[in-house]
């Protein structure tokens, strides 16, 4: 390879760890005494949940940094973290439904955990849509950062709602409530998902930064947009 960037290494490590963790979770870890094999979904569902919330927390931090400094760099990283959070959040919801059907008996119910998670996914999708509709870079950076800061309130709510309100979803487990043989694959996959998420954020930020650069080049009126008449060489002379 010409150049192996640092994020590519992290991404590869993440992928390898996900394979190892999932292998242990699927074939070496025991089934659960009541849930049986279905419990193995935990090793992908729980890491996805943790890292989606973590990545959106990072987006919140980047949004503040973007507002604080006004630098496009933070705007780009915020976008990367937001989009990664949306992808993981959507995945989380689908995994949850697949786990819910055999255990709870339903694919979906409007309990507080499921509802706040859906709001989280939809809201941050909205932030991305908002960005695509605002053409002016500075205004786009401000609006989307404010949206991320305000909408972030839902993320701690997703985490804590099961402790504050009655819900169908159970409260957080802890090492005391999970068999030790199940903790190893869970931890490996949690770090795997973290590394993959860092890779996604880095790639997506790079993309956004390239777009921003393109915009700022295109923005000054020195160059006319493609397809318009260029009045630079008057014919009559």
């Amino acid at each position: 390879m010409k150049r192996l960037r640092w994020d590519a290494i992290i991404g590869l490590v993440g992928l390898l760890m996900l394979l190892v963790g999932s292998y242990i979770g699927l074939f070496a870890a025991p089934p659960e005494r009541h849930m049986g094999e279905v419990q193995r979904l935990m090793y992908v569902h729980v890491p996805t949940a943790w890292i989606s919330m973590l990545v959106l927390t990072a987006a919140f931090g980047f949004a503040i940094a973007s507002m604080w400094t006004g630098r496009p760099k933070w705007d780009a990283v915020m976008t990367g973290a937001t989009e990664t959070g949306v992808v993981l959040g959507a995945l989380l919801t689908v995994q949850g439904m697949i786990w819910a059907k055999p255990t709870w008996g339903v694919w979906w119910d409007w309990d507080v955990r499921l509802t706040t998670t859906l709001i989280m996914v939809l809201f941050f999708t909205g932030v991305l849509v908002l960005r695509s509709y605002v053409a002016e870079p500075e205004r786009r950076a401000t609006w989307s950062a404010v949206a991320v800061i305000v909408g972030y309130v839902d993320v701690p709510l997703v985490y804590f709602c099961v402790r504050w309100f009655r819900s169908l979803h159970q409260v957080q487990s802890s090492p005391e409530t999970v068999a030790s043989t199940m903790i190893t694959p869970l931890r490996i996959n949690a770090f795997a998902m973290l590394f993959l998420a860092i890779w996604f954020v880095a790639r997506r930020s790079r993309l956004e930064l390239a777009r921003l650069r393109r915009e700022s080049v295109a923005l000054p009126p020195r160059r006319a947009p493609r397809g318009t008449a260029v009045p630079e060489a008057p014919q009559e002379g």
């Binding site: 996900l18 999932s22 699927l26 005494r33 009541h34 849930m35 049986g36 094999e37 279905v38 193995r40 979904l41 992908v44 569902h45 996805t48 992808v87 959507a90 995945l91 689908v94 995994q95 697949i98 786990w99 059907k101 055999p102 255990t103 993959l196």
Partner: peptide
């Protein structure tokens, strides 16, 4: 009583969707 039998279909579906999305 009270134990989910089988269930590999759900496990495979969950892991497959995770792999596909990522």
């Amino acid at each position: 009583e009270g134990v989910i039998g089988g269930g590999w279909t759900y496990v495979i579906a969950g892991y497959a969707i995770t792999a596909i999305v990522l």
